[in-house]
Amino acid sequence: MANRDCLLAVECLSVDFETRRGSHTAIESVCLDVHAGETVAIVGESGSGKSVTSLAIMGLIRKPGVIRSGKVNFNGMDLLALSSCQRRQYLGRDITMIFQEPTVSLNPSFTVGYQISEVLKLHLKMKRTECRKRALELLHEVGISDSLRCFKSYPHQLSGGMNQRVMIAMAISCKPSLLIADEPTTALDVTVQAQTLALLRQLQKNNGMGMIFITHDLSLVPDIAHRVLVMYAGQIVENCSIDVLFTGPLHPYTEALLKSLPAHHDKQGERLSTITGTPPRAGETITGCHFHGRCSYARERCKESAPKLIAALPDDPRLVRCFYPLAANSKTSAGRP
């Protein structure tokens, strides 16, 4: 799937972690494409490898983590082949990242304005007065009305939502072509979360940047993404566009996730459907499909051999890692719109 017009093309990326008990695989042959102007959501439960994927793309994997194989092509360049010095030119300017805890990600000892200015000075070689002007513009752009006051504030004087807006302002300050958002709204209140999502969507549309949106909450995905990758136990199990996700998921895991959302369930007092069992522990070796132990559709074959991520049907852009994809077998729609 080496796509030439892709902004980011990750090919067969695998990351191992080496511990006292031996090495174990954190993510296994992860492939993903992000086009300019597209938002790709990576959804998975804790431990599914979604954050490791984003760190690997940014080249931030440290010991005991090791990138075993794979390529990260950004604008036709393999980021993993670059030296850390060369890579630094792109990171923070062309590829930027926002994190879950905005209050922790900002340096508590400097004002918000100083921190934004530093980014501008470092990457765009702006002069001081220019920096200040641009920083104020950026704060305005992320919807902070009293930008001058915010400019002079320290992170602890701002609310969580406000700090996340500051983080976003810093992330978009150099007009990046790719923004990686790792659970950016998880620590925020619901009303603030809705605002932040709307802001991200708006900025992405206006700047035409590509975005990777990492989340554990499948219900956020339709609000922001064009395409979704579902991860389970270090593997991508489904890759499909957002319009078809809710009408007919192909992988049993995706279906189970959708069904367990309280928001997609409106009969009061009725039990939610759950996924039995627990995800495999880090380091546990699994033969066959990683999900077979918890899958209600599992058959003999699933225990013996591992399925590949392939197109479910000929001429279908959807990819699924399952021998017996759901909608391909029966036409019954599993999830609810």
Binding site: S153, Q157, S159, Q202
Partner: peptide, 20 residues
Amino acid sequence: SVPGAGDSDRLVAVVQMIPA
């Protein structure tokens, strides 16, 4: 604000700067 509640675009409205 519940995700998927539909048209949340207008929520983007400029926020007032009130230090926490």
